[in-house]
């Protein structure tokens, strides 16, 4: 291969906790190199004390998301070519809207606690002794579940959401998307409790429909659509109860 690009990339990586500084590294450039490859190279070859998190490397586990040039991305499937383009350097920082533990590692507890607060756990209506629920793949509700079900919990949407930054109680796009997929799931029994959990100041009604989550979601899910669905479902439940 003839390299027409510089042989190295200048990388600035966040070091420290909430207070910290960017540290500069020079990393060899390769073809088809991902941002995660760059971070791994730094940790293995330049500074073994760098803390970061990853597992699958193929976009399934949702553990390697970071801020790359100020934008939340899954680093294992983000090519350096995409984020470098005309730039000479890249900046890698821990995800926004989450407490930093060290370097590129954030504390994800609040993110997942909010899934629990949004009642993100499936609650079946039948026992194991009864027959399977039969749901057609083209059932309109099931189609909406399918549109949101592939979330890998990477928190890219959560880091991209301004409402989370402004209102720390806000459940966030991922938890609300999860609630939506369960509300549309015909087998689930907790719809009313879940609607109560996602209504109000911390829930779907605080969404400003900025669509940052939808634009940034690496799985091309639209949490915004799910949140809009939740707003409609809450109104239907309130109106249905009133009349």
């Amino acid at each position: 291969m003839v390299l027409t690009t510089p042989a190295t990339i200048a990388v600035r990586v966040w070091r420290g906790g909430a207070a910290g500084v960017f540290q500069a590294f020079e990393v060899p450039r390769h073809e088809s190199q991902t941002v995660l490859d760059v971070v791994t190279y730094i940790q293995r070859s330049l500074d073994a004390t760098l803390a970061y998190r990853y597992a699958c490397r193929v976009g399934m586990c949702g553990s390697c998301a970071m801020m790359v040039n100020g934008r939340a991305r899954w680093t294992c499937r983000t090519h350096i070519d995409l984020v470098l383009q005309d730039r000479k350097d890249i900046t890698i920082a821990p995800l926004r809207n989450l407490p930093v533990i060290r370097d590129l590692v954030t504390d994800m507890r609040e993110f997942f606690d909010k899934w629990a607060r949004a009642k993100g756990r499936f609650q079946g209506r039948v026992s194991r002794n009864e027959d399977f629920e039969r749901i057609k793949p083209d059932d309109p509700d099931r189609v909406q579940v399918d549109a949101g079900i592939e979330c890998i919990g990477c928190a890219v949407c959560y880091a991209s959401c301004d409402v989370v930054a402004w209102n720390p109680d806000y459940l966030g796009p991922a938890a609300l998307n999860r609630a939506w997929t369960l509300i549309k799931d015909a087998r689930d029994a907790k719809t009313m409790a879940r609607l109560r959990a996602v209504a109000g100041d911390a829930g779907c009604h605080s969404c400003h429909t900025h669509l940052s989550c939808t634009e940034r979601c690496p799985k091309s899910i639209s949490p915004t659509a799910g949140i809009a669905g939740l707003k409609r479902a809450v109104v239907s439940a309130v109106v249905g109860k009133a009349f």
């Binding site: 009604h205 109104v235 309130v238």
Partner: peptide, 8 residues
């Protein structure tokens, strides 16, 4: 419900 009142 404030949101409904706001929309209405």
């Amino acid at each position: 419900m404030l949101w409904i009142a706001q929309r209405a």
